[in-house]
Design a protein around this nucleic acid. Structure first.
Lengths: 162, 162
DNA sequence: TAGACGTAGA
DNA sequence: TCTACGTCTA
């Protein structure tokens, strides 16, 4: 906590450009792109109590879908992915926390920062992946469907701004 | 991985003094005090294949015992603590990996760096704990006993050098 | 793949 | 207390 500017913000981060690369989730926190150490959806609470999403990270663990071009993606809500090593049962996702924040961002037409995990080919030593800032997106649709475990999963369609 | 000088070492770390404070396990890695992100016992393998402990972190999760003075402690081996939220069954600890390395350090009379987690009282915002470097210790005894789950637990008696 | 004294937020 | 698209090593 000691290194974090506490303020979360919506929209672009000063000094950060599309394509900038990071090698660790902690870096995303430091620069302010995504202020949550582990969660895929980061969000902030407004004074009226409503939440808005600030950023999402696609680490590839969920069944997200990238579009034909890089200007569209389908992002899975949080709560689907059981921790298999612990043998947890998958549960229905709920429209709460991060999922609710993404819906609110859609309603308010507020942009969401997108960070994707990419892989470095042929790495012999060190980290074989990185996080790449993809820019601002708008949530244009969302729906609920049955995931691979038969439980409810929320999906969010995002389109790149402009 | 990108930030780490790969070499582990036994004994003092240049520039680090007893009482130095750190606020996150990652800092311990950066300065070289304890080069494992999560494990309590860090160790290195020698060219002959034998392992020696380099450092231990007492985060307070195990049933460690601090002595009357700060120059003695009883440190629990690794493997006892089940992840309760996952409902794992506790298992017998084995004299392997970190536990074996501590025994080897005792046999070879090699010092082990000790880092303790301390708590900041009355913190309203931010981190309420820190890691404090406690200096070099020698393992002088070890034994096996039954832990609170009825499983085998190794204990290591450490005494401050000098 | 599993295991480890993680980390932050609700 | 619990969850969460973690992170590293063997």
């Amino acid at each position: 906590k000691y290194w974090v500017n506490t303020g979360k913000q919506i929209g672009p981060i000063s000094g950060i450009n599309v394509g900038d690369e990071f090698y660790w989730r902690g870096e995303l926190i430091i620069v302010g792109l995504h202020r949550d150490f582990q969660r895929g959806i980061d969000y902030m609470k407004l004074v009226n109590g409503k939440t808005l999403a600030t950023s999402i990270v696609d680490s590839g663990r969920y069944e997200n879908v990238e579009g034909v071009s890089s200007d569209m993606m389908v992002y899975c809500g949080e709560g689907e992915n059981p921790n298999f090593s612990c043998g947890r049962k998958p549960k229905d996702q709920k429209l709460a926390r991060g999922n609710l924040a993404l819906k609110n961002s859609m309603d308010e037409k507020m942009p969401v920062r997108v960070i994707r995990r990419a892989y470095n080919d042929g790495v012999e030593y060190g980290c074989d992946y990185k996080f790449v800032y993809g820019g601002l997106y708008l949530v244009t649709e969302y729906w609920k469907e049955k995931g691979k475990f038969g439980t409810d999963v929320y999906k969010f369609l995002l389109r790149k701004c402009e």
